[in-house]
Design a protein around this nucleic acid. Structure first.
Lengths: 346, 346
DNA sequence: TTTAGCAGTCATCTGTTTTAAGTGCTAACC
DNA sequence: GGTTAGCACTTAAAACAGATGACTGCTAAA
């Protein structure tokens, strides 16, 4: 347990350093303390804070910098989130007030807005229910010229489609038969179950109607995969440049591919609970991200599930400000999406 | 008209400089000349080449660097394109041999391959006919739950779709009536004509069937727009970092938005003729690109039109190598796409 | 427990020197 | 005439040497 004065000192170190990026020394610090103590006293306190691992030095005569543990302590105990400021809130409301064609667009645009507000990189994940989505229905629409569009609709209103080619001998009635068969067997089942059943039960059936079902089966597989992997969006990818010290492309490329990999990225931003969570550097369990922090906030769209928004920035980011923005944003986004769903699914 | 020796000297300057990035001096140059002349002689020749504007100096005692005019002369008169080397060709054939779901995927992947081969940024444009595409047919597929998918098919086999919401009172028969009406009036017409007719002739008709046609009309507009703007793809965007001297984000951002703007980017890579063209720095008529060159090559898919592939690199790029790659690639891509079309549209 | 004072460390800045690569010019050469 | 050796001059870049200033830790006195 730290004394009040130690807490104050740690708090100022984190605040100053995240703001300026310059290690903070005893003299500058003492002048900022609300109580009067000399720089020597501050030095003593700092020596203690260093001893217990909350701050470090870059070299023997430099000012102090928070350690990962220091940031953690700050985030858990010292931070009071800045409420989002008015102009930022206006900007969010403005950007979300446009006309959107579908959920995806709103979520995608959210990533852009969030990255603009913070000047960091933002990740957003669409709302999804706790349980795996359920296959609503399935269509095959002949488009002429040997083309067919497969359309898959899930119970959470997601529509996925893909065009494929068929051999000449397959008429509309055969397509209808296949569609009926698939819907009979699979509609109402969770997608993961559908995927496993596809190979075992459906393919043999399809063979009754179609001679060469490769394209059809592959397409089914594709749309199922697409519907069951959770789509996420990135905004402000380029900002990564400005807050990464090392601007070398060979350093950045792996980070970009990490971010663009659905499974990896989703892993980092899935927040377990219902609010805001902060993951700092090494806590992210991927060495590439050891100098970055991720702040995630979940937003709630009632019966339509929960989504996640997240900001990726440097470990030395102004946590209270960013947390305020994420919190303000997720509330606004919840509202917007509830409206959206209510409007079209009353 | 330059003498043979002057040409040789200019050629070596360009080759060396594009390879190393270091200004080339008289001594190093003389040792590379096939004929024996002293560095003093080379100095005299260089003074002349500088006088007529083909080369320049960075400062009074530095080696020489090609000017834009020098590059131009080199590209027009001195360059002999390196044929693409075997391993590169293998890599192209490998990457293009996979299974593709549609043209777009091939073209998109081409941008990635091309950027990997060159380590520059690549742009690719799908094949399109000389004339505006023609509306093949139009569909409205009810998906249940107030959702409808609009599908537009053009004569060059492009399929565009979008989901929209309708008010509760619109049944399948009404949709069918609208579809019939639109197809009757517009099928077979060029898309630009369709777009202009939409507002004038179609909207009033739609009003007969639908009370609140806003979403439908907007969707029609969207899919038409999407089908008539030419889609292009970018590969290796990040490479821009490694070949730009200034990797300040505020410098790069406008370049990225330029590249991502459909109209702007298409303007630069539309090559008029049937082969390879090189645009160097200021010739690109956009100040942002003054330190870059673009090499474009068109590929021909017979009756399905022509597409374009392009490489964006620094003005000091190894032109003969890159031209060789672009040339090899466009041939391979032509073959691949002809196969693809033949397979599904015999 | 706090503080003033002091010696010591180290990154950063400054100006200076050295080095090396290059030029232009002149005078001699074939 | 074109070609070349030689030399003085220029310049960027690297190497070096202080000087500066922001720090620290420690000690001893308040």
């Amino acid at each position: 347990m730290l004394t009040e004065r130690e807490k104050m000192i740690l708090k100022i170190i984190v605040n100053d350093y995240t703001k300026s990026g310059v290690p903070v020394g005893s003299k500058a610090l003492s002048s900022q303390l609300p109580i009067h103590v000399s720089s020597a006293t501050v030095r003593n306190e700092m020596a203690f804070l260093e001893e217990i691992g909350l701050i470090t030095k870059n070299h023997s005569s430099s000012g102090r910098v928070p350690s990962i543990e220091g940031y953690r302590y700050y985030v858990d105990n010292l931070l009071n989130p800045n409420p989002i400021d008015n102009s930022d809130m206006m900007m969010i409301q403005n950007s979300l007030s446009g006309r959107f064609r579908q959920i995806d667009e709103i979520v995608q645009q959210s990533a852009d807005i969030l990255s603009n507000l913070t000047n960091y990189t933002a990740l957003t994940l669409k709302p999804e229910q706790e349980t795996t989505p359920i296959l609503g229905s399935f269509r095959l629409v002949p488009l002429g010229n040997h083309k067919v569009m497969a359309i898959l609709i899930t119970d959470n209103d997601e529509v996925v489609n893909q065009v494929f080619h068929i051999d000449g001998d397959m008429g509309g009635d055969k397509l209808d038969a296949v569609v009926r068969m698939i819907n009979d067997k699979l509609a109402g089942k969770p997608l993961d179950e559908v995927i496993t059943k596809l190979k075992a039960e459906i393919v043999p059936e399809i063979l009754k109607y179609v001679k060469n079902p490769d394209n059809l089966v592959q397409t089914l597989d594709d749309v199922l995969m697409q519907a069951s992997t959770n789509q996420f969006y990135i905004g402000g990818e380029l900002n990564l440049l400005s807050f990464t010290d090392n601007n070398d492309i060979s350093y950045l490329k792996p980070i970009y591919s990490l971010l663009n990999d659905t499974d990896d990225a989703a892993k980092f931003i899935k927040s377990s609970d219902n609010s805001i969570s902060v993951q700092i550097g090494p806590e992210l369990s991927n060495d590439l991200l050891k100098d970055y922090s991720i702040i995630t906030g979940s937003y709630d769209v009632g019966p339509y599930g929960k989504g996640v928004i997240a900001v990726l920035g440097p470990t030395r980011m102004p946590y209270s400000r960013v947390i305020g923005i994420v919190d303000g944003f997720r509330n606004e986004l919840s509202k917007k999406l509830r409206n959206y769903y209510d409007k079209y699914n009353q």
